[in-house]
Design a protein around this nucleic acid. Structure first.
Lengths: 156, 156
DNA sequence: ACTAAATAGTGCGATATCGTATTAATATCA
DNA sequence: TGATATTAATACGATATCGCACTATTTAGT
């Protein structure tokens, strides 16, 4: 592979890595206590996508190792933001349910993030963001498909 | 801020976060020993951008806290991939220089990553990537500028 | 020159992230 | 049905990441 082509992809991943770091730092700064972006993201996912997901489904959705999701969920459960119950369809598995406190926390977190998001929406054209999401989703899916299918969660 | 607009930015950051995680996992899997993507990225930066940077400059370049960069550099120094010397222009500061071993390691890491990158270049159109980098760089710069200028490294 | 404020790097403790190995339950199949 | 492989979750240990606080040095202001 020639050097120019290679550095193109490195630059892409570098920019994306930095944006991920900056956006996460921005959100972390608005979240209380020991709660950080992954906690909020999981709550948000449970509301936006579907309640009652299994830990493994959540790990896949965020592309983190199972053990990382176990840890994140333990933090949410300790604060009473989710309830983790046995999966009635599979004795090995669990289901993660939002609690009322979890919903309230998610709403208050969004409120806390709102000023930053509003500022951002003034600085970054929404249509430009929409045009980005398509290709980014495509790249995400390709990267996802590249992983060893035997390892759906990277450490299984 | 209305909910649609808000979820647009959340989706952007979510996709970017997942791609960052996947690309990092992909690279980590090809790096030896205890070396991970940040180690490689720093070496790559020293070659591509400029040798002899200070730790703080590197922390800013990657938008990580100073302490994180200290830790990353310690790992590189322990393996003899960089030499950290006093900054002749500032007694508080240091300068990070690549060693020959560092260059060799960077080259071998690139060689190890090459198959993945080649696969990627077949699956993701290079021109599409080029069209992404501009807007992403812009967003990165805006996010960067949004941070409190008093805290150039998030924990200063 | 002297003092006060700012800056560069790091020690330290807390938490996050990850890989490996383990346990329990389920699925496969002879 | 019984043996084997697969799967979901977690315990555990190692390292990464981060914020806070501290030291040494430099810079600014008088």
């Amino acid at each position: 592979m020639d050097s120019d082509r290679r550095s193109l992809y490195f630059r892409l991943f570098n920019e994306i890595g930095i944006i991920a770091q900056l956006s996460r730092a921005m959100m972390d700064a608005r979240l209380p206590d020991g709660l950080i972006t992954p906690h909020f993201s999981v709550l948000n996912h449970l509301i936006r996508v579907a309640d009652g997901r299994t830990p493994l489904e959540l790990a896949r959705a965020f592309q983190v190792p199972k053990t990382t999701m176990t840890h994140t969920l333990a933090g949410l459960e300790a604060r009473g933001f989710v309830a983790i119950k046995p999966n009635p369809e599979d004795g090995r598995s669990k289901c993660v349910w939002l609690t009322e406190a979890g919903r309230r926390f998610r709403d208050s977190a969004i409120a806390a993030l709102d000023p930053d998001m509003t500022t951002l929406s003034r600085l970054v054209d929404g249509e430009k963001v929409e045009r980005l999401i398509g290709p980014l989703t495509e790249i995400r899916q390709i990267l996802d498909a590249q992983r060893d299918p035997k390892k759906p969660s990277r450490d299984a």
